[in-house]
């Protein structure tokens, strides 16, 4: 059996929750969130490919890449801040096909 869709939804939903907690000032999710954004940027800029990106975060990375490739291609990964996190939250909330848990 193939449960990928359910797992993807769960991972994306939790990532969304982490972004919201981060904006509220809970710093414990910063590293995890930033790593996903960096991997998305690496995938779009050709530094990594589908065989080499972080496998545990794969569904989130691919989702972000497909949702707004321009944004993640040009994002400054060295100075990620609340404005970026807020923008990504809005990406999720714009998509009606995403089940945020």
């Amino acid at each position: 059996m193939f449960y990928s869709h359910t797992l993807e939804s769960s991972k994306i939903g939790l990532f969304h929750l982490f972004l919201k907690s981060l904006i509220k000032g809970d710093d414990s999710y910063r590293e995890d969130v930033n790593n996903v954004i960096k991997e998305t940027s690496s995938l779009l800029n050709g530094d990594k490919d589908f065989y080499t990106i972080d496998r545990d975060r794969y569904p989130i990375i691919v989702y972000l890449k497909k949702s707004d490739p321009d944004y993640f291609k040009h994002i400054d990964i060295n100075s990620l801040n609340n404005k970026d996190y807020q923008y990504i939250i809005e990406i999720f909330e714009r998509q009606s096909n995403v089940n945020l848990i």
Binding site: M1, Y3, S4, T6, L7, S10, K11, L14, F15, L17, F18, S28, Y29, D32, D56, R57
Partner: peptide, 14 residues
């Protein structure tokens, strides 16, 4: 196979 606990690092971080 149920992947929900093997591949959901986000839950363990949470």
């Amino acid at each position: 196979f149920d992947p929900s606990l093997a591949f959901n690092e986000e839950i363990y971080n949470l």
